[in-house]
Design a protein around this nucleic acid. Sequence first.
DNA 1: ACCTGAACACCGTTCAAGT
DNA 2: ACCTGAACACCGTTCAAGT
Lengths: 189, 189
Amino acid sequence: MGTTPSTDTEPLRADSARVRARMLQAARKRVADGDLELPMNAVAKAAGVGVGTVYRHFPTRQALLEALAAERYTLLVAEAEQAAAGPDVAAEVARLLRAALEHQRCDPALAAVLAEPDAARQETRDLGQALAAAVDRLLERARAAGEIRPDITVDDLRALVCGLQHAVTVSGDATDDRYLAILLRGLRA
Amino acid sequence: MGTTPSTDTEPLRADSARVRARMLQAARKRVADGDLELPMNAVAKAAGVGVGTVYRHFPTRQALLEALAAERYTLLVAEAEQAAAGPDVAAEVARLLRAALEHQRCDPALAAVLAEPDAARQETRDLGQALAAAVDRLLERARAAGEIRPDITVDDLRALVCGLQHAVTVSGDATDDRYLAILLRGLRA
DNA sequence: ACCTGAACACCGTTCAAGT
DNA sequence: ACCTGAACACCGTTCAAGT
């Protein structure tokens, strides 16, 4: 993995950065149009680059998805950190789950990334760790306050939120709030 | 839809039935091997028939999936009808949801079919209607007994069970029972 | 170094030709 | 009637050749 620029630890050369931005833009457009498939050939053509270039920057469809999701993932981590520090634990749990649902709804790529346990990019692993740390702090407080079932782990919460998102998708009617209320009630100690 | 034999209302000619069975067997093998993609060409080759024959019997990947899921779907409907008639409403709701989870876990094709609102085959629509009718009777009783949130509809329950199944899948650990308990608690009036 | 795009394998889908 | 499989378009992935 030493030759791929996809981890963007180094400031890409200007032309490379431009090309990369074009690919991400093309991919984002596809996702926005409701196509999570992200065919590499199609992305390449839409971005006006050769297929090999797409593969060089994103060795995997998963890597491309993660790059797309990174921005919203970062927002979610920030909200988790706020929630972990917020005053009213129960309210913070509710706020965070609602935010997670909302972010997944706005960015299907994020929903896919959260549901996939093995991240392809280092950046995604870092985000996942930061998220887990913040949620763990929140859970600890919630447990101490007797506000949540003591057996719930960070990973349970991740799975349950992904499931809730799926439930909202399956039901045509956008009834996030009711389903969220059901989950919150079910999580109570 | 007048020329397709896929609705099996008429007793297929013997050779046609044989060919059909071979295709279903090949498809089932793929699903059992964890591949829900069901490439028509691959199914055809595995079944030793021409691609056109697969398309004739199953005009769509969705139709093929539904044919695969029909058997377990039928079992699920039977359990729903038992549950609707059972003595202890709360226990029947729990039993039914547990059964739905279990059937989805055993047959990924069923999970896909339950999550898809628009059925491709008439048989699937019939099963869906029978299931909805039974679940509705159960819900009516549960509401009357004050055992469930009164706003929960049959479609909510379908979505929530699909979501729960997804949560179990996302979490590597097979923790169905805990997640089921959370949902049941959340559903209480 | 980085990018291009031809090349090969595979899948979706149709349809003319066989029995 | 039913089945076959060639045909065409498209996508995944690699890699030799260009700059």
